[in-house]
Simulated scan of single mutants.
Amino acid sequence: MKTHDERIAEMTFASVYPHYIAKVEKKGRTKQELHQVIEWLTGFDEHQVQAQIDAKVSFKTFFEQAILNSNAHLITGLICGYRIEEIDNPLTQKVRYLDKLVDELAKGKKMEKILRNS
């Protein structure tokens, strides 16, 4: 049986992306704001994100190709019952960083706070 971390690694970014859009748009945020958050975390602009979706890359590949923001470690708190800063698996932690940013966007947090610009 696959572990939680293995399932996350194999999941495609393309399979989760529509859920991110639906989540933020349902709360009155925009796809552009979602892309701003993704770009801040990964360095991928909108075209690069679309290329990742078209290629149906796994989260493992997605984050291997990403250039993680140097302030990503400032993303803390609970997501899906896990404390982000205590997640041992580096890939799972990066995926949870993204989940947390999407959550914060959907909850109406100000962009400066989400992007950890203090």
Score class of each variant (00 low, 15 high):
76 T>S: 07
78 L>N: 13
30 T>G: 14
86 E>H: 05
56 K>Y: 02
108 G>H: 03
14 A>M: 14
110 K>Y: 12
39 E>K: 02
57 V>E: 09
72 A>H: 10
110 K>N: 10
29 R>A: 08
85 E>C: 09
75 I>L: 05
32 Q>M: 08
44 F>W: 12
80 C>M: 10
92 T>C: 02
29 R>Q: 11
99 D>F: 05
93 Q>L: 02
46 E>Q: 13
50 Q>E: 14
93 Q>H: 02
64 E>I: 03
81 G>K: 04
34 L>R: 02
10 E>K: 14
47 H>L: 01
39 E>V: 00
83 R>A: 15
88 D>T: 03
66 A>C: 08
45 D>F: 08
110 K>L: 15
110 K>P: 06
27 K>M: 13
77 G>C: 07
99 D>W: 07
86 E>Y: 06
13 F>V: 03
109 K>Y: 05
89 N>R: 01
11 M>H: 10
37 V>M: 13
78 L>A: 10
37 V>S: 09
105 L>D: 00
93 Q>W: 01
108 G>D: 04
61 T>G: 10
88 D>Y: 02
42 T>W: 05
48 Q>M: 11
65 Q>S: 04
90 P>Q: 14
76 T>F: 07
61 T>A: 12
12 T>Y: 01
84 I>L: 04
24 V>I: 08
30 T>P: 14
76 T>I: 06
88 D>W: 00
67 I>M: 09
56 K>E: 06
22 A>P: 01
101 L>V: 06
89 N>D: 14
69 N>R: 06
94 K>F: 01
23 K>N: 13
31 K>I: 11
58 S>L: 02
68 L>Q: 14
70 S>N: 09
104 E>S: 13
91 L>P: 12
109 K>P: 00
26 K>C: 07
112 E>D: 10
113 K>M: 11
104 E>V: 11
71 N>Q: 11
99 D>I: 05
8 I>V: 10
51 A>L: 10
56 K>D: 06
107 K>N: 11
61 T>L: 10
43 G>D: 04
42 T>L: 09
111 M>Q: 05
108 G>K: 02
74 L>H: 14
52 Q>T: 01
16 V>S: 14
106 A>C: 13
21 I>T: 07
70 S>G: 06
98 L>H: 11
103 D>G: 04
50 Q>P: 03
76 T>N: 04
64 E>D: 15
103 D>Y: 04
59 F>H: 11
107 K>A: 11
45 D>L: 10
